[in-house]
Design a protein around this nucleic acid. Sequence first.
DNA 1: CAGGATCCAAAAGGATACTG
DNA 2: CAGTATCCTTTTGGATCCTG
Lengths: 142, 142
Amino acid sequence: MIFSIIWILIYIIGSFYVDTMKDCTLYKTVDIIGKRWTLCILLELYKGQNEEKQFNELKNMLQNITPKTLTTRLRELEQQGLVRKKVDDSSIPIKCKYTLTDSGEDFIEIIQQIKKWGLKWKFDNKECEKSQCKFCGLENIE
Amino acid sequence: MIFSIIWILIYIIGSFYVDTMKDCTLYKTVDIIGKRWTLCILLELYKGQNEEKQFNELKNMLQNITPKTLTTRLRELEQQGLVRKKVDDSSIPIKCKYTLTDSGEDFIEIIQQIKKWGLKWKFDNKECEKSQCKFCGLENIE
DNA sequence: CAGGATCCAAAAGGATACTG
DNA sequence: CAGTATCCTTTTGGATCCTG
């Protein structure tokens, strides 16, 4: 009983630090790229010298992704300026080509950093340690 | 009607690319750090020359985080080797100190990279462009 | 081919109260 | 102080079918 009072006091005293951090660039950025499939999509677009990819090409490479999710992610990325969409409606069927923008390509470097960190500290993965991993398609730098 | 058949055919032909990528180091790493609050926690531990932080200190700095979530995240990070936990039960109340491990500190560099990318390509943020942002506590490199 | 629409399941996280 | 327990809401994404 006496302890409870002590703890409540300690607790209240401790509660005076408050700060807000939602507006931070960092957290905004992470909000964009922290979502499921986003990295996969970026990598898929990056593979093969950043050539144009069509919707169903992406869908087939990313097995298990549903069109709904892919559409959502692509739109987010397009809106955030990481991905560029071009529509070719000169023929039937219509073709939509997706490519990375400059900022999107620049972001690949971060992904590369993350992979490097993973290899350094955490995971043994024969495939990923090859000069070119077949999963993520990234060559190992350094 | 005739179009439907054409499209079905195109669709089937396109479906022959399949690959798996779950075992990639990259995706495993992102699984760890892509979760909500994780980056905030790492940054909070990093602030102030990486000194020890207690549970309720963290909880107070990260307003809106619930103890349940904080516990979960800390345990994940501890298990993944990014965070170290020390218990001091020599006095009442017990104190639990959390610090970054070497790999955890190393990871801050990636966060720094992400921030740099965000500032370069996307967001105007007066606070974040200062030499030291009060939100994420990171100094701006380069 | 490139999605839109609808419905549904799972999971993540918040609110709140409680404890040693 | 450092959590645990319970309940509940919200978000997310999968399944499936449909269309121009």
